[in-house]
Computed example of a mutant assay.
Amino acid sequence: MNWLIKWHMRHWTTIPYSTYCKAYNQWGGSFITHPEVIQGISELLEIPVMFQGRYEDDKLVAAVPTWGNYIAGSKTALKKLGKRGLIDVGNPEVILPMSPNIRIVLPYKSDFISGEHQPQIINLKNKGKALCLAKGFHSDGFSKKFKYNHRREIRLFQNEGGEFKPINSIAVDQLCAIYLELFEKRWGFSAKGSALMSKVLDKLYTFLTGNILYIADEPIAIQLVYQVETVNHLSVEYVNGGVNPAYKNHSPGSILSFTNIQQAQEFADSKNKPLRYSFGLADNDYKLRWCNKSPVFLT
């Protein structure tokens, strides 16, 4: 850590979990920085999590969860701490609880910091990376043709006995088994974090959203999607999924993506909040059918 970062750290002090929760409720954040999410992940990985706050004129203006010198949840931190691959929470967008009017140096390392922080964090670095955020169902989102084609797929699927079941209507153990089986069928190898998957799903169960597709009581497609509502927006992370290739003629992956985004959009609209539905890193062309690129930064 260089002298400049050390100099800026003098403005930060350790704060209790309850104070971090208040900051998150006041200024918002994202899925990975939600107090219960980062606390639960830290417990599972046996990484001590600390909460740091920055004060100006004796008033808290920013709060961050940390693993040592890193923002908690950072993929770089997981690698440095020897925990990489133990869990899969995708490449989540990092939005931190901060007063909208501040201009500060963030003295902790992180990747995938949202462009929403450009007006606030001075030392952001752009390495050309971007996340894919779903276009959504508003006038500037999916085209009429796109929506028509996918709704037609859904009708054909249902006409042939296809069903949707809410993911959070399935018990954790069964849900874990379905995900691991369908992931391996789709990709031909085991899901990352399979050993801890049941515990992760148990910790994050209340944040799961979306559906599982069934035909004749057999699960054929699943996506792990986590959702948190913040004061500013609805933050949704599509982590990964699995599909039984035997049913590829039904386009189950596309059906699931469409209906899961639609469900999230309807909820966001009911709360009169923007939807930030992330497909993770912009590393695959297929995502651009569903998403727009949104730049992310590191410190």
Rank of each mutant, 00 (worst) to 15 (best):
V225K: 04
Q52N: 11
Q174H: 12
L298R: 04
V61S: 02
C291I: 01
D88P: 01
K199N: 11
Y20H: 11
V49C: 14
N168K: 13
G136P: 01
I178H: 03
K80E: 15
D58L: 02
K6R: 15
R103I: 03
K287I: 01
N149K: 11
T206Y: 00
A268D: 03
E181Y: 06
Y286M: 05
E46T: 09
S235C: 09
L275D: 08
Q120N: 14
A268C: 09
W27Q: 03
E36G: 15
Y205H: 14
W27Y: 10
K165I: 10
I41A: 03
T209H: 04
S169C: 00
K75L: 14
H138D: 10
N211Y: 15
L4S: 13
H250L: 12
N284E: 15
I104W: 09
G242R: 06
W27I: 04
S251M: 09
V236Q: 02
W3F: 13
I215K: 15
F258K: 07
I167R: 04
L175N: 04
V243N: 08
V89L: 12
K185F: 05
I212S: 06
G193V: 06
A177R: 11
M9W: 09
M98K: 05
F51A: 04
Q263C: 00
V172H: 00
L204M: 12
N91M: 11
G68I: 03
T33L: 07
N25K: 14
G128D: 07
L131M: 08
V89A: 07
W27L: 07
D88Q: 06
F137P: 04
N91E: 13
S278Y: 10
E43A: 09
K109H: 11
L298I: 10
S74T: 07
E266G: 06
A62Q: 05
W187S: 11
W12F: 13
F142K: 01
W67F: 06
Q118W: 00
K75A: 08
Y70E: 03
K199R: 14
L4H: 13
R151N: 15
Y247S: 08
V37M: 07
N2L: 11
K145G: 03
F157M: 07
G193P: 01
K127E: 11
R103D: 10
A177Y: 04
C132V: 10
K6L: 12
Q263R: 12
K6A: 12
H34T: 02
I95R: 14
L156S: 14
Y148F: 14
Y214Q: 07
N168W: 00
V231G: 02
P16A: 05
F279T: 02
N232P: 02
V225T: 15
T299S: 06
T19L: 15
K203C: 02
Q265T: 12
L44I: 08
M197C: 10
F164E: 05
V236F: 08
S139M: 03
E229F: 02
A134L: 09
H150N: 15
H117C: 05
W27A: 05
L96K: 08
V61Q: 10
P274Y: 08
I215E: 03
I41Y: 01
K22D: 13
Y277F: 15
L275K: 07
Y20E: 10
P119K: 12
Q174Y: 02
R10N: 15
Y55G: 02
G241C: 09
T66E: 01
L288F: 01
P65A: 08
A63C: 09
K129T: 07
S42V: 00
V228F: 00
K135V: 00
S194V: 02
